[in-house]
Nucleic acid binder design. Structure first.
Length: 535
RNA sequence: GCGGGUGUAGCUCAAUGGUAGAGCACCUGCCUUCCAAGCAGGCUACGAGGGUUCGAUUCCCUUCACCCGCUCCA
């Protein structure tokens, strides 16, 4: 209950102060889409900039102490539809679903996980029974069917081995049809035919809609990176290992929007595909997993609400060797929710694109080859065949480590983490305790009163600072009120020009979290803000 | 996608089958020398569409959005 209240207060503040609005609100809104207002766009931009700076332009040294090679791309949202065949988004894992039509059930199942198990009578006089179950395999379905039958207290075969499990797809194509399959939940024979889920948003490239020009809005930014793997390699002189990063919008049609901006149909990803030699993939996986967790902590997620969680084997996508979800315990949920997944994807993606495009995606280790051939040239004796064989050893299909972060999800986590209520001199206060680096406004410039030359001094300082920082000038009303307004916007510093400023050119610098003030010379305000933003 | 709940001003909440009201916030002025002070004035609302009715914010239907649960999902 308490948690929900916190969330409501936060949502209210985000709207009131211009962090987040519902999309198309004047028309009643639209489910699953959100707009960032003036403060929100600054916050999110600071987050994306911090990510780009810390991951692409200035990543820390790698596990071996050497510099990491990182570059970026910015790919189109609409790509050749074959990309999505290769990735598996078309046809592959857009699993058909079946729903139960009976009143009071209405459950939804993945069609490939529904089985009908025929339990034949154990002895004459018993009735055979058909049981619907949800299971991962036919064997598992048989075992489950026995249990279900027992619970239903129906006469059934006691011999599990006599049970025959049939997949839903085999029944649908048979004469019996879907009508023969009992619902795994209520056992009524009232399932709908399997329906494909609309995983991706569809559109058409060109003025006329035909099946030939159907295109999709990308459901992830990753595939643009894989599709450009050869281009990047050929245009940059990069050598393995290296990473390609991208920030961009992605769209998913099948999800059910929920929990404010957390689950939206349009969202922004910050993704890295890090390519490395298969033999080094494990250490790079661990490196990125740890680095990414530290990044969140460094940007102010200091509470124990941040939790990395290694995915269990049964959760893993079929191609993934290992995946760690970095999760945050949002106020709206009892369970931590995923901010980022760091996945070891093996060579799955490059293999898929090599297969579907017909292009070779192998990497050739020229450095290693040059060293080897120098040392072994003599022993080869000019044998071209042997040389070609040796060369093969320096070719590999790189493995991929994918740290994939949600920009909107992290923005929401930052908002949740920052939200605080406290008391200043007996007065209640709402304050957003953003890390100074992420705060939408870095400092407020405030003349204490509007006379005696204070506005002029304040405005001059404002002009100076705004060339470097997003600062806000406010001369309206009592200074205490202005401080509180900035507290709600999460502005870390308040700079006030008072009577003393006129005499000695010093100003007061107020800390948002403690409300403590120190006097600093006007000339060193910029450096002071710079220093505190790093801290 | 299914079931339940909610919808009045920027926010919190009233009232009403017959001109919708308050507090806070916001804006303008005056006054103000450090944490939402005071005075005067001002702006702003019945989610949308349809029906019943002389008249609907109120009753009915549809729809949209949000919240909770299931399902799905990054």
């Amino acid at each position: 209950m308490r948690l929900t209240m916190d969330m409501e207060n936060l949502v209210s503040l985000c709207r009131r102060r211009g962090f987040i609005f519902q999309s198309s609100e004047i028309y009643g809104g639209i489910n699953g889409f959100w707009d960032y207002g003036p403060l929100g766009v600054e916050l999110k931009k600071n987050i994306k900039d911090a990510w780009w700076q810390d991951m692409v332009r200035n990543p820390p040294p790698g596990p071996d102490g050497r510099e990491i090679s990182m570059v970026g791309v910015d790919c189109s949202i609409i790509m050749n539809p074959k990309v999505w065949e290769a990735s598996g988004h078309v046809g592959g894992f857009s699993d058909p679903m079946v729903a139960c039509k009976s009143e009071g059930c209405k459950k939804l199942f993945r069609a490939d996980k529904v089985f009908a198990v025929d339990l034949s009578p154990a002895k004459p006089g018993d009735r055979g029974v058909m049981i619907g179950v949800e299971a991962n395999s036919e064997a598992e379905a048989q075992m489950q069917a026995i249990d279900v039958a027992k619970k239903l207290k129906k006469k059934h075969s006691s011999d599990a081995n006599s049970a025959v499990a049939m997949s839903l797809s085999s029944l649908v194509s048979s004469a019996a049809g879907i009508e023969a399959v009992p619902c795994p939940n209520c056992q009524q024979k009232s399932l709908t035919a399997p329906r494909a889920f609309n995983l991706m948003f569809e559109s058409h490239a060109g003025a006329i809609q035909t099946d030939e020009n159907k295109v999709y809005l990308r459901p992830e930014t990753a595939q643009g990176i894989f599709a450009n793997f050869k281009n990047v390699l050929d245009s940059t002189r990069l050598k393995l290992p290296f990473g390609i990063a991208q920030i961009g919008k992605a769209f998913r049609n099948e999800i059910n929007p929920r929990n404010y901006t957390f689950r939206s149909r349009e969202f922004e990803q910050m993704e890295i595909e890090f390519f490395c030699h298969p033999s080094e993939s494990k250490q790079w996986y661990e490196f990125w997993r740890d680095l990414r967790k530290q990044w969140y902590t460094r940007l102010g997620i200091k509470s124990d609400r941040l939790r990395p969680r290694e995915q269990g084997k049964e959760e893993l996508a079929h191609y993934s060797v290992g995946t760690t979800d970095i999760e945050y315990l949002f106020p709206f949920s009892a369970e931590p929710q995923e901010l980022e997944g760091v996945a070891h994807r093996g060579d799955y993606d490059l293999t898929q694109h090599a297969k579907h495009s017909g292009k070779d995606m192998h990497y050739f280790d020229e450095d290693g080859w040059n060293v080897w051939i120098q040392a072994n040239k003599a022993s080869l004796g000019g044998d071209k065949k042997k040389e070609a064989e040796a060369k093969e050893k320096f070719r590999c299909l790189p493995h991929v480590i994918e740290p994939s972060a949600g920009a909107d999800r992290f923005t929401l986590a930052v908002l949740c983490e920052a939200y605080a209520e406290d008391e200043i001199g007996g007065e209640k206060r709402t304050v957003m305790r953003f890390h100074p680096r992420l705060a939408p406004i870095k400092a407020a410039i405030l003349p204490l009163v509007n006379r005696d030359g204070m506005p002029e001094k304040a405005h001059a300082l404002y002009r100076e600072l705004k060339s470097e920082f997003n600062v806000f000038y406010d001369d309206k009303g009592a200074v205490g009120r202005r401080y509180r307004r900035q507290d709600e916007a999460g502005t870390p510093f308040g700079i006030t020009i008072d009577g003393d400023t006129l005499k000695d050119n010093t100003v007061t610098l107020r800390d948002r979290d403690t409300t403590q003030q120190v006097r600093v010379p006007m000339a060193s305000v910029a450096e002071e803000i710079r220093k505190r933003m790093r801290g």
